[in-house]
Amino acid sequence: MNIAVCVKEVPSATAAKRLDAATKRLDRAGDSELNPFDAHGLEEAIRIREAGHEVGEIVAVCMGPESAQRPLQKALALGADRAVLVSDPSLAGSDIVGTAHVLARVVAKQDADLVILGQQSADADCYVMAAAVAEHLRRPLVTQVAHLEIDGSTLRAKRQTEHGYDVIEAPLPAVISVSDAINEARLPSIKAIMGAKKKPTEKLSAADAGVDGSLVGADGARCVVQSVSPPPDKAKGKRIEDSGGDSVEQIVAFLAEKGVV
């Protein structure tokens, strides 16, 4: 079977995040990285192969600007066999449903039996992309998978709800999103990082991908940001830097001052 893993470029955890006043979109001028939640999707794909299942190829699929080549290189270093970037000025400003349409179009061309997404994006906190992609592909869906087994052409997944855990079976092809607790994503070796440069990367325009232009970009977005404002004031907390446990006295004093010890 073949596996497609959808990945996203997000601002680095250390980068200051702000919305551009004019476009009301996330300012992506700073450093970026592979969405950390997506590393768990790639890791799970590799583990399926390592568990002895016949995995033809693992393809990383990304929609984003040209700069998304870098996080895609990381995806290749983490174990994807090849990468597809759909990048087109007409896609900038797409909303969730528009982005899902593009990802579904690209994934549909990859002959993937299993489509894996991370549980959410680290920048937009969007945790519904998998459900929208599955709907566009008309394939079974299991989200927030904490444990996954593949048995022939069936997947068996354990996922948490508000009531405990459900064990769900679904026939392949299917779409899943994985919990960040499903695995510990490995760090790529130097050899894997070097090897990633030799792996094929394909770049598609919106037209190449067969995207319906009426659904994408700022003009196609159905959910439109109207204004951005500061949140209600909340007193800033106190912060202390600990070194070898030397903050304990200050913590105890703080707790005593608040009357909780």
Partner: peptide, 23 residues
């Protein structure tokens, strides 16, 4: 909010081609 509710909401928005606002 809810695990199943979120999946229904996103699936429905995709089917209807409507905008979805989360959180």
């Amino acid at each position: 909010a809810g695990v199943v509710s979120a999946d229904v909401a996103a699936g429905l928005a995709a089917r209807l081609g409507g905008g979805i606002n989360c959180e």
